[in-house]
Amino acid sequence: MLEYIARRLLFMIPLLLGITIITFVVIHLSPGGPADMLTGLSPKVSAEAKARLHSLYGLDKPLHVQYWLWLTRLMRFDFGESFKDGRLVIMKILERLPATLLLNVLSLLLIFFIALPIGIISAVRQDSFFDKGMTVFVFLGFSVPAFWLALLLMLLFGVFLGWLPISGMHSVNFPYFSFWEKLWDVIKHLILPVFISAFGGLAYLSRYSRTSMLEVLRQDYVRTARAKGLPEKKVIYRHALRNALIPIVTLLGLSLPALIGGGFIFETIFAWPGMGRLGYQAIMARDYPVIMGVGVIAALLTLLGNLIADITYAFVDPRIRYR
């Protein structure tokens, strides 16, 4: 098991290097490279920031040296300073990270605990009314632009019904609330963003769990379980489910990039004070150090998600654990 985790960790190193290379390439993709950002696209940049940027990228040196310098800075999470307010990029990201993590973890949990039962029940009762209804839901889920759904829900719950707040993480008078009021306030602010950011994943994972379960139900060991004389419930919820979970767990880890990517839209729409909104604002303001920082951190989070998925995978599948 330890060996397996170690192997996974080692495997992440080339991936990490690759991520930094691509990010580096993207910076130099802009016409004229980072040098051009200083003058052409961002006229607001101060002279001081220009000088700092110059030294940050070592723009006078050859490319591979520039990359190496940049990489050593990255390893210390030194992304430089924001063009906008001169604060350290890493600090700006760190203060936004908890909100993003809260949103994503809740979304993942929601996806898992709603999509999984839906998929399993659909598979067990294949072609039933429930299954057909869910298939329609899944198709709609794949096809609805989530940001549009967000608008509609804001319109319905926020504007027409007035039940839920439509932006931010707290109400204005948040500091004066008691603990329980604070909690309730945050929950109310969370409902729409969590639902919207989970929405795509919900459809996808329900479909996937259904497929996975159908596949498992066809397996010989399910027939063996029945042949033993086990009641159908135990056959399904003990023998089949454990096996169907294996690919689903992996997928959950892999759905992290989509969740984080979606965050850039949803956090913006709901004015959620997370990393995604920071990234979006940075993009709109062409605040390159922040864009870079957010990009690298987002990729890191994805890698972390993959690692967690790999470890969970080993937990649910003894064929990985004991090789």
Partner: peptide
């Protein structure tokens, strides 16, 4: 395949945003 793995690690949507920001 390693290149594919790396590409899949990026939140695609952010990668797109990032590139568009530079272009």
């Amino acid at each position: 395949m390693r290149f594919v793995d790396i590409m899949l690690c990026f939140p695609t949507f952010f990668l797109i945003l990032m590139v568009i920001a530079f272009l």
